[in-house]
Design a protein around this nucleic acid. Structure first.
Lengths: 276, 276
DNA sequence: TCTTGAACCTCCAGTTGCGTTAGGGTGTAT
DNA sequence: ATACACCCTAACGCAACTGGAGGTTCAAGA
């Protein structure tokens, strides 16, 4: 029967010499040894075993788990349990990866657009993607499931993601610049209006109506940034900036009420003025 | 200014105490220490830093890389380079993951269908997915790029993947059962015909024609299983079974030639008989 | 004031799946 | 005899933690 040295196995299978010795060491694949030279001697059978190991490793099993299955000539339904678990693990990993990739894409877009980027802003963006699930969970404390889904799983919105990010970046920049001015200063109020318009302009009319409704029900107070939000996705502002911004928002809201303009109208004006 | 103990930070951020101490140890995040009690004291600033670390970790940077960026207040285009590289890495990982998931799905399907499964068969399937790229590379030695793509990126084929796998599993089973019979025995020839039909039945007519053409040009000899194929994706047969199968295949091909039936006709017959 | 228990501390070891030396043996061709 | 390719064991290193042992510190209750 044909036999092979460890180097030949490496050439045949691509598995490194070190790895083969390691598998021998941990008892996963133990070839016979030449008693005189102490060299490892691999048979065809060993090569098959090695292929089995590689397969099971490929689908994510640990060497320890592989050891449990390696000596069985056939696999039964106990393997299915393991595979189901593994599949779930891998799918979770994949979702994670997709988010990470998305976050990187955002970051790259911003860097290209702006050349330079505030580290807190970048962090804020990444975290908002990272904790999307938690954000949705938190939002359902204020809005119903349907509305939350409308905000997060909006196809149209996905198309315009880059726009949104840029407008957010602009907003952050302006807050840094304008901080210190009185909160009812025209420039400040204009900044807030621009930001709100570009944000709400991307949501459907019904969604905006629902949110407006809630705000009109004086739930605005309970909607203030609570601790939990900050933990998930901290805003790229200092404590003072945050307070200043909150005051400016209040001013804006009051001005809206005073003028009898609700957000629905604001959105309609926005749409007609914006979409060419 | 407000300060926090290590336990409070864990509650606020979800980062474990051990990890926080580790980050301190490697100099990534070093809070001040109470000189008398030696307890760590975290400030708001530290929490921000920690969030930065989590963000950069999320997008796949190593702690070592993070250290390079953590103290910069703004990021410039050098980060973009890093991010581009990271993105490529992550996308590669994602492709890998998708293949693994696919392989597991196949395996689960088979286990459900058959209840029990030959370990060599499972391995053969997983490896064929794992080494898809290499297989394509090897195939282009015999077929042109277009034809190879037609075989691998066939949408219709993806729909029927489960069918294919089952027919492959059946084939493997039958080879084990019938091994020993003369290679020109009707049962053996029927087995081969069934397998070829269910395989080629899923390819387009043009693709089959191209393959037939090649076979008719007497390139069949050079197409025999060479060593390299076996390394990539070993067949779930013993050496003897492989030889037997090769002989049976030759018999089948000769019978075809003798009868003046080429594979194109075979496919057409297959289609009319198979697709309801 | 003493005690209890939670929360904190340092230091050391272990995890996975290998890669990378260091220091030496074996086999064969020249 | 020696050069050279190949093989051996043994030990350390890696990333990013986790866990345990054994010892403080702190706040509250008896």
């Amino acid at each position: 029967m044909e036999t092979y040295s460890i180097g030949e196995i490496t050439k045949k299978t691509g598995v490194s010499i070190r790895t083969l010795r390691y598998y021998d060491e941990i008892g996963l694949l133990q070839p016979t040894k030449d008693p005189s030279s102490r060299h490892r001697i691999y048979t065809e059978e060993d090569i098959l075993q090695l292929h089995k190991i590689m397969s099971l490793k490929f689908i994510g099993l640990s060497l320890e788990e592989i050891r449990q299955y390696i000596h069985q000539p056939t696999y039964d339904l106990t393997l299915k349990e393991t595979l189901m678990l593994e599949k779930n693990m891998l799918e979770q990993k994949r979702r994670q990866l997709e988010r990470s990739i998305q976050a990187i894409e955002y970051a790259i877009t911003l860097l290209e657009e702006e050349g330079e980027i505030d580290s807190l802003l970048l962090m804020s963006l990444i975290r908002s993607i990272q904790t999307e699930d938690d954000q949705k969970r938190l939002m359902t404390q204020y809005l119903d499931q349907e509305t939350v889904d409308a905000i997060f799983h909006n196809e149209e919105l996905k198309q315009k993601e880059n726009e949104m990010i840029k407008s957010y970046a602009q907003f952050v920049k302006q807050v840094h610049e304008l901080y210190g001015l009185p909160t009812d200063h025209p420039d400040v109020q204009h900044m807030i209006e621009t930001f709100l318009r570009s944000t709400f302009g991307l949501l459907s009319l019904e969604t905006v109506e629902k949110i407006t409704e809630l705000l009109n029900q004086n739930q605005w107070d309970s909607f203030e940034w609570n601790e939990e939000w900050d933990v998930l996705s901290p805003l790229p502002f200092s404590k003072e900036e945050k307070q200043w911004l909150e005051q400016a928002m209040d001013d804006y809201m009051q001005r809206l009420e005073h003028m009898g303009i609700d957000m629905k109208e604001s959105k309609e004006g926005e749409n007609s003025g914006y979409e060419k």
